[in-house]
Amino acid sequence: MTNQGIAQYQRVSTQTSVMDADPHRLIQLLFNGALAKMAVARGAIERKNFEEKNRALNSAIDIVNGLRESLNLDAGDLAGNLDNLYEYMIFRLFEANAKNDVARIDEVHGLLSQIKEAWDAIREQAIATQPMQQVAR
């Protein structure tokens, strides 16, 4: 399969996943997307492909910002703490982009991976609290 064919398959697969996803799954997809973009950026830095690195980190920043914007800050301290952590991650990704620093990307990747693991662990509980029409998708 050519690179163009692979890219087209990934776009269709992603679109299908998003259309069929419940709210909990949508957040999982955002986590996966941000982590994947960070991995691409890391590889691009190692290959000295700075245009690709810039695109990938800007996408990762946009996704983390989307996660941040999805928080319900009225829900309590956890949401506020996540807001601060996402803000920190965005700052570190900007720094990584400016300095071509894989260590900063690795730091954010590790932090976001921990949040994703916790999010994945509550999937059954989250689905149980959703209205039936959302779960039935």
Rank of each mutant, 00 (worst) to 15 (best):
A36N: 04
N54H: 08
E69D: 05
N54K: 10
N72A: 05
V64I: 12
L82S: 08
A79D: 13
I63E: 06
F94E: 14
I90Y: 02
E46G: 11
A79S: 12
E46A: 14
D83R: 11
L85P: 00
V40E: 12
D83N: 10
K37V: 00
L67Q: 00
A39I: 10
A79Y: 02
A60S: 10
F91H: 13
E51K: 11
L57F: 12
A41M: 07
S70A: 13
R47D: 15
D77E: 13
A96M: 09
G43L: 06
L57E: 07
L93R: 02
F91Q: 15
R47H: 06
I61F: 03
I90Q: 01
L57V: 13
F91A: 09
N72Q: 12
D62W: 03
S70P: 03
A34S: 08
R42G: 13
E52T: 14
A79N: 10
I63V: 08
A79W: 01
R42Q: 07
E51Y: 09
Y88S: 14
E69S: 15
F50G: 08
A41Y: 01
L35G: 13
N72I: 11
L85C: 05
N49D: 14
L57C: 09
I63T: 12
I45W: 01
A41V: 08
N54W: 04
A96D: 09
E52I: 07
L85I: 12
A96E: 09
A44C: 01
F94S: 14
I61P: 00
G76Y: 00
N72E: 12
N65Y: 01
L35Y: 00
E69I: 06
L85D: 03
K53R: 01
G76K: 10
A34L: 02
I90P: 02
L73S: 11
M89W: 00
L71W: 04
M89E: 07
N72D: 15
L93Y: 00
R42N: 03
I45V: 12
G43M: 14
L67C: 07
R42I: 06
L82R: 03
F91D: 09
V64K: 06
N97R: 07
A60H: 02
G43W: 02
E95S: 10
K37T: 00
D83A: 12
N81Y: 06
S70W: 06
A44L: 03
I61M: 01
S70Y: 00
L82A: 08
K99N: 15
L71V: 05
A56N: 03
A56L: 03
I45F: 09
L73E: 13
A36D: 12
S70H: 09
G80K: 11
F94Y: 08
D77L: 14
A56T: 09
I61Q: 08
Y88Q: 08
A34K: 00
M38L: 09
N54G: 15
E51Q: 12
D74S: 14
R55H: 04
R68S: 11
E87P: 02
